[in-house]
Design a protein around this nucleic acid. Sequence first.
DNA 1: CTGAAAGCGCTAACAA
DNA 2: TTGTTAGCGCTTTCAG
Lengths: 345, 345
Amino acid sequence: MTDPKPTDRADAAKPVRTITDLARIAGVSAGTVSRALSGNSLVNTKTREKIEAIAREHGFRPNQMASRLRRQKTGVIGVAIPLGHDVQQQISDTFFMTLLGFLADELTAKGYDLMLRRVVPSNDEDWLDRFIGSGMIDGVVVIGQSDQFERIEEVADGYLPMVVWGNHQEGQRHCVVGTDNRLGGKLAAERLIAAGATSLAFLGDTDPIEFAARFGGAKEVADKRNVPIRALPTHLSPGQVSSEIAAHLEVIQHEADGVFAATDTIAATCLQEMRTKGIVVPNHVKLVGFDDLPIASQTMPPLTTIKQDIAAGAKGLVDLLLRRMAGEDTESLVLPPHLVARQTA
Amino acid sequence: MTDPKPTDRADAAKPVRTITDLARIAGVSAGTVSRALSGNSLVNTKTREKIEAIAREHGFRPNQMASRLRRQKTGVIGVAIPLGHDVQQQISDTFFMTLLGFLADELTAKGYDLMLRRVVPSNDEDWLDRFIGSGMIDGVVVIGQSDQFERIEEVADGYLPMVVWGNHQEGQRHCVVGTDNRLGGKLAAERLIAAGATSLAFLGDTDPIEFAARFGGAKEVADKRNVPIRALPTHLSPGQVSSEIAAHLEVIQHEADGVFAATDTIAATCLQEMRTKGIVVPNHVKLVGFDDLPIASQTMPPLTTIKQDIAAGAKGLVDLLLRRMAGEDTESLVLPPHLVARQTA
DNA sequence: CTGAAAGCGCTAACAA
DNA sequence: TTGTTAGCGCTTTCAG
């Protein structure tokens, strides 16, 4: 059998695809190669070096798929982003992306890979079971409960290594890490009222439970202070938001002098729309956002907002997940939000 | 054999973990179950329905690890983000995150999963070979060449299914999709000069080749017009940038009336710093950014910038990658940048 | 249309 | 210290 193609590239002709090929070349058994390459077990130093040399020379890497199948663990963490209440919302949403970034940093530091899956639950009943049951991941973090609270609860009953970013409800069964949204809402309303607002509006969708809690908190203090408050719905996708806000501006102008935006993104857009309408912030209307994304400090005037500590959140998610993967049934982690006072309220 | 633990949960006691378990219950062979579940082959409708029913009842999912090992394809695309020139830069960089978001949308639409890996090449010589050789992915997209141009070239010689987001060099061997950075730089400089600038500064690191090309383009038109231009280095990590820019402001104030920021993020920060120093944009200094991130339209005044079409880029990456996975040796794709004229120049 | 059997590439006892 | 063996859970010929 002649090899008809000349080795026109330095590293062509590499028939070393498996541990067995390598074993043959090295004159040892596959088992020995496996041990040598995994560094673990007792292998004669000379043998190991020889094997490593050959591996390097041929650019050989053990097939992870096979290894992981055999060892029944994958070394990858699934990250699911359910896009439930607003299919238009892209995964590119800034808040989620930032959290994802920190998550990737954190997971990488712990030696795990990250498998990202964007899901649209309305098209796909059992997205979560599918992900978990795929055998591709050792654990899962769900970013955002969206409108899938119930489904997540169900799954949590039978699957330990799952942690969810989102809102904490009294008595819920799944492990969540997230900001105390209700408290955040309170802080926002208090700030608005302290700044002189006498009638409030909440700008954003109140369906997602995180947002509902923010509104709920704000409403609680508004009610207590006898300040009226109303919810003005918007979507999350950048396209629609501008015009929706513009449509709300009329009522804001006449009936509200304090606006609590569900997110900084909404707040920033709102600020823009107000400027085009000649509404002066904070003189005519006070405004507070939520998240403290980078943009909050770069609007003009800079946005007063409720800060979520995203880095701490990511760290918490990973920490709890690893403990759950080790069998511990961890409690949820609720992080305190903080008022960041800038110039819009 | 009695089952000692009462089924206190609806879905407890599920010993159906493998296709073989299921086969036993259904009274057929493993092969048949496999065929039934994959939907592909010819299976008696009744048999299939029975198998599907049992699978549903027990919440059974075929193990993807095993399936993929056997079929020698994984259905996952690796996405590597090399953090070379600036280790401090987090994966959370807005531009990359946005691109990643679109990529996830695009890949999901084509039925692929996405495995994200953040790499620090300086700690890890052969990050790319490791990723590719892992057997975990069918193809790879590298987001950003960072300072790894040569390494990517080497790998490209022996591995077809790879596409890179970045800058295109004459005669390069790896398939890249990206914006024509040089042209973008030209557009920026032309705009600045047309707006009346007589001395230019480029604000940003010129090491990464994308940025070098932006600077190169700007320099080309500046030289042609006899306008001086200088590079003022900054890093990319949010922490450092503010103070670095502040430090540069002195020279900008005295020696430049047109600044071309390497990215919108830098431009936005610059805008802020200038305001604190009382420098009025665009009256005292003209400013143009690069990327057209959402923030560009939300600064005050809104940023004139060079737009990269990120969505088209993501689509291009996926399209080319899939063709390469099918064996085609595709050309690179260079997208045209566009000037978005707002109010800073 | 279905069963039997042979692996995908690797790891982990168990012997030697 | 190393080789041998038996699979991980699934897919896919090849017979029947």
